[in-house]
Design a protein around this nucleic acid. Structure first.
Lengths: 243, 243
DNA sequence: CGCACACTGTGTGCGCCATACACAGACCAT
DNA sequence: ATGGTCTGTGTATGGCGCACACAGTGTGCG
């Protein structure tokens, strides 16, 4: 297992420069490609990221990108690496709950800035530098809880899953936007029309028991913290059980 | 708000037949299209589902599908509706924990049979009949817990998010397959190479403290229930707090 | 000092995709 | 019987990821 076995993109992201070689120097760096792709995705969604559009953004031809990236999936790796900055440093004074909450909120904020991250298919666990830093900090939040390494990993993954899942429900349109509340209203109306109380008694009762405008959960506001706290209560029970 | 406002696909899925009209009868039903697409996706992943392949599977031309479905996104709606069968009936004797666990495991099993479900982008909450039945049963699991309708919805969503997230980590390759353990071994080797103990002390310590073969979490086996129980412990705390 | 050659960016082309549109025939309400 | 509307078809368009051959470039080595 040596560095050469790594996909080229990872070698570049880790700054592993090969020895000097003949031929022209590359004009730019994969990070330029990543930034251009991120710019496009921020502006018009992941669907707007194509090899030709990214190349045009840089003023190069489509095929030139393949000198830096073996496939579009590798471009996604670069985008994921660079979309979030480095994680916030861990406050050594804080409790594990405060630490992991800070981490989760920062993660959520990143998703809010770059919603397309959730649309990138996950093919393998992360190996790029900044992604590992996020992983490191997530694990470190559980450092003094007495959880085993395996349990710490499970706990971090659980929080990670929660943030991604909660984000998938609302991220993409800003909280409280007119667009969102309109879509929600339409959904509730349709649900009320379709959810026959005989066949769907619980849904129907749920609908009746609240103002029609907020059937769904506004995960962008307090609901995010509410759900996170529920998850953390579960982890707290785990910590107590292991102690 | 009348039935006519619904997307055509939903009208069909709910069996809302319009009045008899002139012209030839349709040769088949959207459910046939859905089944053909599911067959393709089961065999070769969501990427193998294209309008032309689905049409060929049915022995029709590509464009004929557009007489039944307005876009490929609507095809996805049909696939989602038909991939899972109806949910298992609720056992009225069981505790809420047993009920929601049954529900979650059935959901997980469905994902295992049709992993491509996780790759379908979620654009709007479900409105099709069987999806509503799953929602109904998920809500009903919390019926006698004293949770408010809003809290029940949050709890169900939390479990839903967990199952989807846990599934995304492992679903797609069968548990314990050689392929999976090989990928895992490779990942751990690379992680060990890249995770400098100075920069990533917690990751490095995590790696050292366990056999190299199982750094990642085998969510297919007991880990799924373990994580689920952690989530349910959190919900249990919520129930206790509300009481 | 010069040169071979690995490497850069380019252009062309292939197969696939979703889908717009015009059309010919089929069928039912009238 | 027939008009109008629906069905399935054929053709076409613009986009996509990417394979491949090519011309020029500049460095490390003889």
């Amino acid at each position: 297992m040596t560095a050469e076995d790594l996909p080229r993109v990872l070698q570049q992201l880790w700054g592993m420069e090969g020895p000097a070689r003949p031929g022209p120097k590359p004009t730019f760096h994969i990070s330029d490609i990543g930034n251009a792709a991120i710019k496009l995705a921020d502006a018009a969604g992941l669907g707007a990221v194509s090899m030709s559009k990214v190349a045009a953004e840089l003023g190069f031809t489509t095929m030139s990108l393949y000198r830096y990236v073996d496939s579009k999936d590798e471009l996604y790796v670069v985008m994921l690496e660079q979309a979030f900055g480095p994680p916030a440093p861990i406050d050594p004074e804080a409790s594990w709950r405060e630490r992991i909450t800070t981490w989760a909120v920062a993660f959520r904020d990143g998703l809010r800035r770059h919603p397309w991250v959730l649309q990138i298919p996950i093919v393998e666990p992360p190996l790029s530098p900044l992604q590992l830093e996020w992983m490191e900090n997530g694990l470190r939040a559980f450092e003094d809880t007495g959880l085993s390494p395996a349990d710490s990993l499970s706990a971090m993954l659980l929080v990670n899953i929660y943030v991604r899942g909660a984000g998938a429900l609302t991220v993409g349109t800003p909280s409280g936007s007119e667009e969102v509340s309109q879509a929600n209203r339409l959904y509730v109306q349709r649900l009320a029309m379709l959810a026959d109380p005989d066949r769907f008694p619980t849904i129907a009762r749920n609908l009746q028991s609240r103002p029609a405008e907020d059937f769904d959960v506004d995960y962008d506001a307090g609901e995010f913290i509410f759900g996170l706290d529920t998850v953390l209560d579960g982890i707290e029970a785990l910590i107590a059980r292991r102690a």
